[in-house]
Design a protein around this nucleic acid. Structure first.
Lengths: 235, 235
DNA sequence: CGAACAGTACGGTGGCCGCCGAAGCGTGGG
DNA sequence: CCCACGCTTCGGCGGCCACCGTACTGTTCG
């Protein structure tokens, strides 16, 4: 156990793993860049991570792409982040860019205010039920997703976590994770309601998406700017 | 994040945290012993862990007791263990004592073969439903727990995780965690069906417990010794 | 077929940190 | 009242490891 934690414990490797948490595969050079180390050093780190089965690699021509070994690794990183954000007695400027807080990817599902808002709606309408960290999709929810065009049965068939809450790292409240969360995010991309920002975990809501999300999910994102500078709030 | 992981990444601290995972508080000297380091070294480690809010301390006379800062820390350690047990390509003698595998505490709930068996029964009878990592208690389950004398509503009222599966570290299958898991374990202790082994996470089943668990949960623990030496199984 | 590039292997250096010996509190018991 | 005990702090030592410069393999172009 200590060995795994020690691997995550190095800042360079932690940066790499964070970058990989969006579920995409990155080339060794890109990871070296995000970790602020030379390619040789990065190569060594990646070899260690791969050796411990935390990441998997796919050679592609003269590149080599790395991705997380599985959802269990993403879940571990999330739980470490949750503790880390709860801990910091250190001088810790919560310098979280607001676009990051607004909407971002968390492994393969949506997080940030958008992710939390969607989860709130799904819960309020009785489509999904969460304990504090466990959950299911109700019959009504299954119909709702089907009408949206998402095949819940397909998601359920897989071996991976089906439906679970994931404590949002910036909002400190649960958002929808698991196969259902992944399917929902993918569908919103396909509908072009949301879009990715190149090379970042940040997600933007398209004009169409803003309308549709308000109509279908009752999600109002306009207040985002009201919360953009919460530091102003009197202590 | 790297800072938190690095704290867990040291073998001595990892041993201490593992010992604390049974939910009890230990004195500094005891933790020094389990970590195989001198008291002064342990003191330094404990100061670091407390500083990062991973553990909390309670001075008591000339002793000082330490415990995990909360369930979120236990959850993090569990998820790291899960990844660690999935990783190890290293020469890794799974030297898990059989009594540990049979029944042990995992933070405040039951793990090991006993914990997994109870979870299996509760699932098979439709009292709890698990996704792969999320879960709920059904109406039938609520009645079942009530008949047993466990107040589910009280557990539900709390802020902490209500009902969730927790991948068993030795059995690699889910057992019942969260507030319900904790309440169930506490109740079994109160009924004197199970008892703790001093200074260890190991739990033993009393003669009365063996009968009652078989009758109420249909759990047969007699096969424990059949699995005691699985190393014998031909490769 | 050779140049440019991505990624990897190796060796040396430097810094961080875990470790213990010795000494300094505070509590509890004889 | 003093001593024993548990815990903590300080200082110095030693080892591990992240880091990079150099050099090598393999792939993709012109």
């Amino acid at each position: 156990m200590a060995a795994v934690a020690a691997l995550v414990g190095d800042p360079a490797r932690a940066n790499m793993l964070c970058a990989l948490m969006d579920g995409r595969a990155y080339a060794a050079g890109e990871l070296a860049f995000v970790a602020h180390v030379s390619p040789q050093t990065a190569s060594g780190h990646l070899a260690k991570l791969a050796d411990a089965k935390l990441i998997a690699s796919s050679p592609a021509g003269r590149h080599r792409y790395f991705r997380l070994a599985g959802p269990h690794v993403a879940a571990m990183l999330e739980s470490i982040m949750a503790v880390a954000s709860a801990s910091p007695p250190r001088v810790k400027p919560p310098r979280v860019p607001d676009d990051m807080r607004a909407a971002r990817m968390c492994y393969d599902h949506l997080a940030g205010r958008l992710g939390v808002a969607l989860a709130d709606t799904l819960q309020a309408r009785g489509f999904v039920e969460f304990g504090t960290d466990g959950g299911i999709v109700t019959n009504a929810g299954e119909m709702f997703f089907a009408e949206l065009g998402i095949d819940i049965a397909a998601a359920r068939s897989g071996r991976r976590a089906f439906c679970r809450p994931c404590i949002d790292w910036s909002e400190r409240r649960p958002h929808l994770a698991g196969a259902v969360g992944g399917a929902l995010a993918k569908h919103l991309f396909d509908l072009n309601w949301i879009a990715r920002v190149r090379d970042r975990r940040v997600v933007t809501v398209t004009p169409k998406g803003r309308l549709q999300l308000a109509q279908v999910f009752g999600v109002d994102l306009s207040h985002a700017h009201d919360h953009a500078h919460p530091q102003r709030v009197s202590a």
